[in-house]
């Protein structure tokens, strides 16, 4: 495992759900790389498959779902070939996960210290006192006051923001190489969210932990991440450095997403909307998944576009990306055939 081996390498991941009503291709072609200490934002709307991607990496996709294709390499190791016991060993240890709703992810009838200490003891042989001290320090690290007392408390005695900090502390306990955070601040109010984002970023920089931050909120990603991966209908549609993508989105979907953020638009103008709705994962259109909502769609889009790299460090899955000077710069509303603005 050399210095150059990326912490996580995902290639063409496919995770399908085999339900009574058909096969839902929750993840159908996602590729990205996360290097040591990097923060990547995995962005998409609900149903885009971002959470499932996170679960696929950590190996917690439950029936009727299953990872059916692609490669997941963690520090060079092929996770899909790994034994169940190896995966268990990695979880909570080298790869940690933070869930969305901390009220339900912490067991309501167990004390905080129990839930923290067991995470340590599951992976290391230390005595109770040492484990307890580490737990206490972790709570302090995430900014929880009087950690010694708080250890003896139960989850329902904490506020939402505190509980999420506890979850982050648990994730950091065994100093993992990678943390997957699945919309951890969506359920919290904005001020708490800002605090937590700041602290997480600081901690990751300090410890060199790679982080995948799954969210639907572009604003969060803009301030936090180094890289971004945009997902749509289970597919990766654009990747690249955060600043590059946000300043100059190539994929029509990303373009539309950024265009619809109020701060990006001129005051007084109508906000752009992407017309139509996300297709159901059970009946995706053949070819490019975004085809039915894209005003740049053409004949070629009936075939699924491959991933290309039109610019250095930018991955994109599109036949008609926003390239070249004849395209409008990000922020301007695109015009459709009749010359009207918007849908």
């Amino acid at each position: 495992m050399g210095e150059d081996t990326p912490t996580l390498q995902v290639k063409d991941l496919q995770t399908h759900f085999f339900t009574k009503d058909g096969v839902a291709k929750a993840v159908d072609g996602v590729s990205f790389t996360v290097d040591r200490g990097q923060i990547m934002g995995l962005v998409g709307e609900s149903g885009s498959g971002k959470s499932v991607t996170g679960f696929s990496i950590i190996g917690l996709v439950d029936p009727p779902g299953r990872v059916v294709g692609g490669e997941i390499r963690f520090n060079g190791e092929d996770l899909r070939q790994a034994e169940a016991e190896r995966l268990r060993d990695l979880r909570g240890n080298r790869i940690a996960m933070i869930f969305q709703d901390p009220m339900m992810t912490l067991n309501p009838v167990l004390r905080i210290d129990t839930q923290m200490i067991e995470t340590i003891l599951a992976h290391e042989r230390v005595d109770q006192a040492t484990a307890r001290a580490r737990a206490r320090d972790a709570l302090g690290q995430v900014g929880i006051p009087s950690p010694e007392e708080r250890l003896k408390a139960y989850p329902h005695q904490f506020s939402g923001g505190m509980r999420q900090r506890v979850a982050i502390a648990i994730a950091l306990l065994n100093r993992p190489d990678l943390i997957i955070a699945d919309e951890p601040t969506t359920a919290l109010d904005v001020t708490i969210q800002a605090q937590i984002l700041h602290e997480v970023q600081k901690l990751c920089r300090q410890t060199g932990t790679a982080l995948i931050w799954i969210t639907h909120d572009l604003a969060v990603v803009a301030g936090l991440a180094d890289h971004i991966c945009v997902m749509y209908a289970g597919r990766m549609v654009e990747t690249g450095r955060v600043d590059d993508v946000i300043d100059r989105p190539l994929h029509p979907y990303t373009h539309g997403l950024i265009g619809s953020v109020p701060s990006q638009n001129r005051r007084g103008r109508r906000l752009t909307q992407i017309p139509g709705m996300t297709p159901s994962l059970l009946s995706l259109p053949v070819g490019c998944a975004f085809r039915s909502r894209c005003e740049r769609a053409g004949h070629a889009c009936h075939k699924e576009p491959p991933i290309t790299e039109p610019l250095a460090g930018r991955g994109i899955r599109c036949f008609h990306p926003h390239l070249g000077s004849t395209d409008e710069a990000a922020g301007e509303a695109p015009r459709d055939a009749s010359g009207e603005i918007g849908p």
Partner: peptide, 28 residues
């Protein structure tokens, strides 16, 4: 429930998850 999934995400052994997390909740 989410807390079971979270327990698995922490890498706890199945025996512990059943014995502690599951049982404590249903025994009540």
């Amino acid at each position: 429930q989410d807390y079971i999934k979270f327990a698995r995400a922490k890498g706890l052994r199945t025996a512990r998850i059943i014995r502690v997390h599951l049982m404590k909740n249903i025994l009540i």
